[in-house]
Amino acid sequence: MAFLYASVGHGGASGYLAVLAIFSVAPAVMKQTALLLNLGVSLMSFIAFYRQGFFKWRLFWPFALASIPAAFVGARIPLSDATYKQILGFCLFIAVLRMISILRETASKPLPLWAGLSSGGAIGLLSGMIGIGGGIILSPILLLFRWASLKEAAAVSALFIFVNSVSGLAGLKTWIPLDQSSLVYWLIASLIGGFLGARWGAGIASNTKVKWILALVLVIASVKLWFV
């Protein structure tokens, strides 16, 4: 999961949540664990895409400005596990249908400030509520409205995920003690996969490959959220 998600600028929270759900991990532990794993993977992904020159501050700050406080608030709002999975899975599936209809990359358009702030706030609130960084929602938005290229979207989403994950963790009402032995293995696996995926996605993979991998990631996440 970490390799696949990091290659397109994501932290992998939706994938981690799906895997943890398979093993009947408690929802509160799932949310907390996914946000923790998100931190390392999204940071490595951001660094990889940043070094290749794909990060655009003008695309990042409007979304982040509104999303950071919203993620903190969202983490304090209770939401049933079944409800958030179905809503997020549906949104991701719609994003996939729109994305695969874009056969080639077109020129980017300027990001309206109001759109960045409003979208960032909504994504941040949802991210905090369900325990993800929000990049899996931000990336399709950036591409569908042609505000960024594929790899620019990956770079912006990676840092967006990191700051939202930090805010979401800070906003948790309760901190559940985790099984340290299991967490260490999960962290090691995610960091190795994230490092390799980020290097491949930022410096080796073509835009076409990144596009189809992103679509595949969204399909996997939506299917797992609906049926796991």
Rank of each mutant, 00 (worst) to 15 (best):
G9D: 06
G9K: 07
H10Q: 15
G15W: 13
L17D: 03
V19Y: 06
I22V: 14
A26Y: 07
T33L: 04
L36Q: 10
L37C: 11
L39Y: 01
L39Q: 06
L43G: 01
S45Y: 02
I47Y: 10
A48Y: 03
A48V: 08
F49M: 03
R58D: 14
L59W: 04
L59F: 09
F60A: 11
P62D: 06
F63H: 05
I68C: 06
I68L: 12
P78C: 05
P78Y: 04
Y84N: 10
Y84G: 02
I87L: 12
G89M: 02
R98N: 14
L103G: 15
R104I: 05
A107P: 04
P110S: 09
P112D: 03
P112L: 08
A115H: 11
A115I: 10
G116H: 03
L117H: 01
L117S: 11
S119G: 12
A122P: 00
I123P: 05
I123H: 07
S127Q: 00
G128M: 06
I132Q: 09
G133W: 01
I137P: 13
L144S: 14
R146D: 14
R146V: 03
A148D: 01
A148T: 02
F160S: 00
L172Y: 00
L172W: 00
W175C: 10
P177N: 08
P177Y: 00
L178M: 14
Q180K: 13
Q180W: 15
Y185H: 10
W186P: 09
W186L: 15
L191C: 06
A198D: 05
W200R: 08
G201I: 05
A202C: 06
A202T: 01
L214H: 04
V217D: 15
I220E: 03
A221C: 06
K224N: 15
K224T: 14
F227E: 14
F227P: 08
